[in-house]
């Protein structure tokens, strides 16, 4: 893990919204071509962390390196070039509801002028097939889809441009366990096929073990543990084990109103 340069390296990443410190010095290395799972309670700043890497939120302090290059020092053009190689599945899908599914799926390819509109429908059908959806879904509007189908369309949109880094923000949250497992399977398949580096956020331990090689736990704005995802639940770290088992008692105290 130390021999190879990490694909993504975060150092001292900090971000506060007003008075509220969300990230307080996040250090994390993400190995190229592997799956990293970020765990943490709701509101612990997992989404903020990946939005920082994507350039959607500017951190207050710290550094972000992708392939050894300092992202925060990049020119706008370099950043756009980097964004071209990254795919993102948003927590709530974030599908464009003014566009049919096929245009959603091929949006990035069309934006980059890598295909023509005439060819986009066929391409969309191809990508939809990879996530187990029929070509006819392409003509529907996102509002007509069930939650599971929306996740799959979001996944199709994230992978259509064949990125080499993919972020998945809670890909299985809100789905039934079987559909969750199906989505996990799709994620593992596409990541392997593309040879991509995958960063996933999840609360679901079964899902974390399925899609992650490595895991990291975010708590109170810092990474408190990293290790192999396979050991989740018996890591020996009291916080991680409590989180994995879902115990009420332990080092993590829910901040309920007292």
């Amino acid at each position: 893990m130390t021999a190879q340069r990490p694909k993504i390296r975060l150092r001292g990443l900090s971000k506060a919204f007003g008075e509220k410190k969300v990230l307080d010095g996040v250090d994390l290395d993400i190995r190229a071509g592997h799956g990293m799972v970020i765990l943490g309670g709701s509101g612990s700043g997992k989404s903020v962390t990946i939005k920082c890497i994507l350039g959607l939120i500017t951190p207050d302090a710290g550094s972000i390196e992708v392939d050894g290059q300092d992202v925060l020092a990049m020119s706008r053009r370099e950043r756009e070039a980097l964004a071209d190689r990254i795919g993102m599945l948003f927590q709530n899908g974030a599908l464009f509801d003014s566009l049919p599914v096929w245009e959603n799926v091929c949006f990035k390819l069309l934006a980059q002028k890598r295909i023509t509109r005439a060819k986009a429908r066929d391409k969309a059908a191809e990508v939809l097939a990879q996530v187990g959806l029929a070509a006819s879904v392409g003509d529907l509007s996102p509002a007509e889809l069930s939650g599971g189908m929306q996740k799959r369309v979001g996944l199709a949109r994230a992978i259509a441009a064949e990125p080499d880094i993919i972020f998945f923000d809670e890909p299985t949250t809100g789905l039934d366990p079987i559909m969750g497992a199906v989505i996990d399977g799709l994620i593992v398949d596409v990541v392997k096929r593309l040879g991509a580096t995958a960063v996933s956020i999840t609360h679901d331990m079964a899902s974390a073990r399925r899609i992650g090689d490595d895991a990291a736990m975010l708590h109170k704005g810092r990474i408190v543990w990293t290790g192999p995802a396979a050991t989740l639940g018996e890591t020996g770290n009291a916080m991680v084990d409590q989180f994995a088992r879902g115990d009420r008692e332990g080092p993590i105290q829910m901040e309920l109103r007292r």
Binding site: K51, L54, L56, G87, F90, Q91, F96, F107, Q112
Partner: peptide, 16 residues
């Protein structure tokens, strides 16, 4: 609506 449902962020990640 696009802002609060992350669709504007999604545009940025889709090279737009």
């Amino acid at each position: 609506t696009m802002r609060v449902t992350d669709q504007i962020d999604a545009l940025t990640t889709l090279s737009t």
